[in-house]
């Protein structure tokens, strides 16, 4: 669409339709966030007014800071960042190694491994929660960062490997590997000095996927982590949910929810260009 035809009624209509569609899409995607903002900023008595006000009568900006004093939000964020960062690093590292192993000379059994990776996705997590809990308990990993990070790595690995394997297949042709071997590079050397540098977009894409899982997972984390000092933010948010299961501090909940969304949004804003190129070259074709 870089060479536009001359101005015509038809193109104007098409343009307007496209803009209209885009507008509809954005309203659908973003209205919940609008509601999150206005709820956080409403004065106390107005939150549960019915019918609701679509726009706060006054903006109470202090609502955004109050929860940071009432709840250890900073701590939860630090924990989430820590857990997420480790998950991403380990996942991409282990995943890339495995994917590299799988593309080398069309490794025998690669097909079997793919099947195996798929198999891990088939059973719903809710079935395995209790056995997994007992298993983690026996390993002494309950309530530890290690246990949570390893679980997340295990859950993201299959997708990471599938994604990276496909990326490597495209980005790292057999000739390149042969050349590296003739140079006398060992496996790890080739991996670090040749493969990784040319695969950055693929690695970033894989990192983005594991970032998302680690950042927003809550079911397992809430059963496994109880220590306040180690809770990630997705579990910490549940401090605001009371005995009856309902949100007890609505304004505070929304304020923290806003804060949860921002770092993830920034991360994606920065890396989104690379995700697209990381998935190129048929990376998603398996």
């Amino acid at each position: 669409m870089n060479k536009k035809p001359a101005f015509s009624v038809q193109t104007v209509t098409v343009k307007m339709l496209i803009w209209f569609a885009l507008l509809l899409f954005l309203i659908f995607a973003l209205f919940p966030y609008y509601w999150m903002f206005v709820t956080a900023l409403k004065p106390r008595g107005e939150i549960f007014q019915s019918p609701p006000t679509l726009f706060p009568s006054t903006f109470v900006w202090t609502n955004l800071t109050i929860p940071w004093r009432q709840f250890p939000v900073a701590q939860y964020f630090a924990n989430s960042l820590f857990i997420t960062a480790w998950t991403v690093v380990l996942d991409v590292l282990v995943g890339a190694l495995a994917a590299y192993g799988m593309i080398r000379r069309r490794l025998r059994g690669a097909k079997l491994i793919i099947f195996f990776l798929l198999f891990t996705q088939l059973l719903p997590g809710a079935v395995t929660i209790a056995p997994f809990y007992f298993w983690m308990k026996n390993l002494g990993m309950l309530n530890t960062y290690t246990g949570l990070i390893l679980s997340y790595v295990a859950w993201t690995l299959p997708f990471t490997i599938l994604l990276l394997r496909a990326y490597f297949l495209e980005a790292f042709p057999q000739e390149l590997e042969d050349a590296a071997r003739i140079d006398g590079s060992g496996r790890l050397r080739t991996f670090i000095s040749v493969l990784l540098p040319i695969s950055v977009p693929g690695l970033v894409a894989a990192a983005a996927f594991s970032f998302i899982l680690a950042w927003k997972e809550f079911l397992w984390a809430s059963i496994m982590i109880t220590t306040g000092a180690r809770k990630p933010i997705s579990v910490g948010l549940r401090d605001l949910i009371g005995e009856g299961g309902g949100v007890q501090y609505m304004s505070e909940f929304m304020a923290i929810a806003i804060a949860t969304t921002i770092p993830a949004f920034l991360f994606f804003f920065i890396v989104q260009r690379y995700i697209a190129s990381g998935l190129t070259a048929g990376a998603v074709k398996g």
């Binding site: 950055v200 970033v204 000092a229």
Partner: peptide
């Protein structure tokens, strides 16, 4: 790409370092 790689790596390392002392911020 190399620059981005470095940035991402730096980000991760920084996050791990900063948060490595996480329990020091608040402890229950």
């Amino acid at each position: 790409q190399r620059r981005l790689f470095a940035i991402v790596l730096l980000f991760c390392v920084a996050a791990i370092l900063v948060v490595g002392c996480a329990p020091a911020i608040v402890t229950s």
